[in-house]
Simulated assay, not measured.
Amino acid sequence: MIRVLLADDEAMIRAGIRAILGAADDIEVVAEADDGRQAVELALSHRPDLCLLDIRMPRLDGLRAAAELRRAAPDIAVAMLTTFSEDEYIAAALGSGASGFLLKSGNPRELIAGVQAIAEGGAYLSPAVARRVISHLGAGQLGRRTTALGRAEQLTAREREVLALVGAGLSNAEIAQRLSVVEGTVKAYVSQILARLGLKNRVQAAILAYEAGLVPEAPG
């Protein structure tokens, strides 16, 4: 069972996310907080597998709460709950140690998949969030595209295919199904990609996939 702490200062948001996660047989919300300070305190007492933190919260915002948790309890995974209006916070959080960025208004299946992926020791970046982050980076995009393409060329054709699917937000199980291989093979490919490109996690891999143009733009 994946034990989750949910932190958001809006009760309605918490209720909605709790209901979505409750639909999964392997996820349990064990604690809730309405501010960042309370989130840190509850996380240290309940020791959940994953903390879902809203970026904007009173007393202690999600970014600072995440930083505190990474120092005090590095074994607890942290993921940020975001909205489209918080691009600058998402960009800043990329180096905070968070293992995922999930949209509050996203597809419920995406939220569940993200929680499961992060709890398994991976990282998850909502495809929509990835597109917004890359767009928000603004100036220098062409230079980044050239650099990212050069790095991607170090990979085999199959590794680039896996990287593109990671960028599209697919889990290892979904990638395995798409490529007609076993999940263990996908895990090995992902590990090879991270090592070869010097990336820390799937979040960085997803961003590089977008920068290199490996992930097609969603319509609209």
Rank of each mutant, 00 (worst) to 15 (best):
A148K: 01
L149T: 13
H136N: 10
P74L: 08
G198F: 07
G95C: 08
A176S: 08
I175P: 00
A117K: 09
V115C: 10
A205N: 10
A157P: 15
L199Y: 12
L102Y: 08
T185M: 13
V4N: 05
Y89V: 04
K187D: 10
S85G: 14
R151C: 05
R145G: 01
R131C: 01
L142P: 01
L165E: 11
G62N: 10
A43N: 09
R145F: 11
S85W: 08
S171N: 06
Y89N: 13
G62C: 06
E174C: 03
S191H: 11
A148Q: 02
Q177V: 11
A188Q: 15
S105P: 05
G138Y: 04
A77F: 12
V190H: 03
R3M: 06
A65F: 10
L69N: 09
P58E: 11
P108I: 13
A31W: 07
I27W: 01
R71D: 10
D87R: 15
P108W: 12
N107V: 04
L142K: 13
T147R: 15
R47K: 14
D34P: 04
E120Y: 01
E68R: 14
I76P: 08
E10Y: 12
G36Q: 12
A11Q: 09
L42Q: 09
Q116I: 01
E174K: 15
G169W: 00
R160K: 15
V4K: 04
E161R: 15
R109F: 13
A206E: 01
E68G: 07
V4C: 06
L155R: 13
Y210S: 06
R131F: 04
R145E: 12
L44Q: 11
Y210P: 00
R59Q: 15
I207W: 07
P48T: 07
L53K: 11
T83V: 11
I90Q: 06
G143M: 07
R47M: 06
R56T: 09
L94S: 05
I90P: 00
G213I: 03
P74Q: 08
G122R: 14
E161P: 09
A93V: 03
L44R: 13
E120F: 01
A93D: 01
A113C: 01
S135L: 13
I90Y: 00
E32W: 11
A72P: 03
L44I: 04
D34T: 12
K200T: 09
D49E: 14
I90T: 05
A93R: 02
E174M: 13
E120A: 15
V162T: 14
R70W: 02
A195R: 15
I55W: 05
L170V: 04
L149W: 10
D8W: 03
V40L: 14
R132A: 11
V215E: 02
Q116A: 05
L163Q: 06
V133P: 09
I76H: 08
A43H: 08
G220K: 10
S96E: 14
G106P: 04
L125K: 03
R202K: 14
A43V: 06
Q204I: 02
G100P: 12
P58F: 13
R132G: 05
L170W: 03
L50Q: 06
L6G: 00
R59A: 14
G62K: 07
G184V: 03
Q204R: 12
I20P: 02
A7E: 07
E153Y: 09
D26I: 12
G198R: 14
L53N: 08
I90W: 01
R18H: 08
G114D: 00
G140P: 09
L103A: 05
E161T: 15
I17A: 06
